[in-house]
Amino acid sequence: MGETLLQVKDLRVSYYTYAGEVQSVRGISFDVEKGETVAIVGESGCGKSVTAKSIMRLIADPGKIKEGSSITLDGRDILAMSGRELRSYRGAECAMIFQDALTSLDPTMKVGKQIAEVLTIHGMATKREAAAKAVELLRQVGIPNPERRAQEYPHQFSGGMRQRAMIATALACGPKLLIADEPTTALDVTIQAQIIDLMKQMQKELNAAILLITHDLGVVADIARRICVMYSGKIVERGSADDIFYRPRHPYTLALLSAVPRLDLENKEHLASIEGTPPDLLKPPAGCPFCTRCKYCMPICQEEMPESTDFGGGHQASCWLHDPRAPRVDAPLYDEKEGRV
């Protein structure tokens, strides 16, 4: 076991809208060790991006991180930080890359200058040194002609190059934690493969931890060591990549895995789709949030949220099916012999 870097405990985030309180994140806990890659997987609206923003303290009105939540990085309480402390925390200790690189980069500023700005603001370099370092960073992330490219504006970059520039910006100060919020979703597959490789390579060089937020199980299988599956504001299952992909214990994880058609398997006529839609977080259900879409739903599921069951090795799932009183389901949640769902 490595050393814990990031620890999130009972995080609750709500948005206070005219329609009422939208409970985006409803009490989640997880941690990230130094230098490892943890992925949070889930569909849109499950609260995964809100979780990422909370760690960066980027939740803006009408959103609020509720009392009782705790986030610590290297033992320091993020939620108690003052504005001044936050400014030195963001970018230097914890950096974030976003899905849409075009809107995340400043369109009026040359790319080299944007990267250099991070360094000067954190007092890590003089202007001149920072400009040279920016070019060096662009070279490191694989941008050809970095000297010339540093003098260009984001709109002159292609989608993949913008994402590379953003990674360069995020890594400029050598953060301990890199949060990547859907970093490849807007990119084409061949470019996506390049960016994932770049992230892996940079992680090795800098020994930074990565918290990857994505909906793409394929990307997760490629890069993550541990995975948290989120559904409507809660982590329903967590475990190592192998646990999640080969021994899923939550019906939602199972359904998610079987809903993805795979290239290396035979064509099947019918995809196992998940009927219905996720619940409305204005009125979150009292019981398991997945119960309305779950094949194995029991009366208890609608009334009470299940406790998480531990399967050893950090593999946990919150499902009533694992309660000793629950009936055995006909379809096993995973097949021991096949080793695959």
Binding site: T190, Q192, D216, V220, A221, D222, L257, R262, L263, R340
Partner: peptide
């Protein structure tokens, strides 16, 4: 060939 090999497969062992 390149396009097919770039697609991530949701299977850690294969990846």
């Amino acid at each position: 060939q390149a396009l097919l090999s770039a697609i991530p497969i949701p299977d850690p062992e294969v990846e």
